[in-house]
Computed example of a mutant assay.
Amino acid sequence: MSKMVIFDPAMCCSTGVCGPSVDPELLRVAAVIESLKKSGIEVARHNLSSEPQVFMRSKAVSDALNERGVDALPITTLDGKIAKSGSYPTNEEFTRLLGVSVEATKPAKAKLTIEWQHLDVEGETCNRCYDTGENLAAEIKRLNRALSPQNIKIEYIDTELDGTHISDSNTLLFNDVPIEDILNIEVSQSYCASCSDLLGTKTYCRTIKFDGNEYEDIPAKAIRQAAYKALNLNEDSSDTSESSGCCCDGGCSCC
């Protein structure tokens, strides 16, 4: 089979699928390449910002850059010869150039169900659960943006608990598996003033230890990692502080 290589313009990561605003075209290309990989077809990619020497080693690519500059990128080569320059191959061009079926470029359908179990007292929840809910809402938006081109659907379930199930409050399940069984998370309990006020009795509720830090809520970083791990996917992102919506500007470990 012919060898395809894509020479990308300078991007923040190997696929460009990161940051607060992701180009849909980059999402499409990443999804197609991942689908091809699952079909046993490897498409190599090189990023100008991190691998400039690879660009110079290819005479065809080097000549194109000397002639047109970075406007020539992205460049797709097939067996060392330029097959397309200035834009990425369409899905149809991928199939034609590689001699594969259309099905090989289509991502398999998948679904990730995220269930959040939390205390609810007449429409109110505790401060810890509220913060987890805010983190979860932001991460679901981010996951949908990143995973929808791969034909992965995120299904969200909000399960409200009363005071008799306080030990289960602020729990996240990914495809019915608790987050602490997916990641290296230790669960414990501590006094919760907010729950105590809502329930009218001294109450202890969940805390977690993740990445060496103690949290009363479930941080965005843990939610994101658990989602990708539950789907058996690798997260490709070099800048999580911008994409998570966190206000810490990357100065803490929460995102």
Score class of each variant (00 low, 15 high):
V187I: 13
E214L: 12
V17G: 05
C247Y: 03
F174R: 09
K141T: 03
L136T: 07
E216L: 14
L97T: 04
N135F: 14
N66F: 01
T113N: 11
H165S: 11
N66V: 00
I75Y: 10
V100Q: 05
C18R: 04
T77K: 00
K84H: 08
I114C: 09
S14E: 13
G250L: 00
K202G: 06
C247V: 06
K202D: 12
I182W: 09
L199T: 10
K209C: 00
S169A: 15
T171D: 01
S169Y: 11
D197M: 01
C192E: 02
T159E: 07
V22E: 10
S194V: 06
L112F: 08
A104Y: 10
C192F: 02
N213A: 14
N91A: 06
R96G: 02
E186Q: 11
P219F: 04
E124Q: 15
C252M: 06
A64F: 08
Q117W: 13
S243E: 15
K81T: 15
N127T: 12
T105F: 06
P219W: 03
G200H: 08
L36C: 10
A108W: 01
S167Y: 11
G86W: 01
D158I: 01
L112R: 05
P219T: 04
A104F: 05
A193K: 15
E124L: 14
L172M: 04
V43C: 03
N91G: 09
N213L: 12
G19V: 02
A44S: 13
A60K: 03
A60H: 01
I152H: 04
I208G: 11
A31E: 07
S196T: 15
D236H: 15
M1R: 13
L119S: 04
N127A: 13
S148R: 14
S169T: 15
G123C: 11
V100M: 10
E214W: 11
I185V: 15
A83C: 05
E92A: 15
I166S: 12
A60R: 00
S194M: 09
R96W: 00
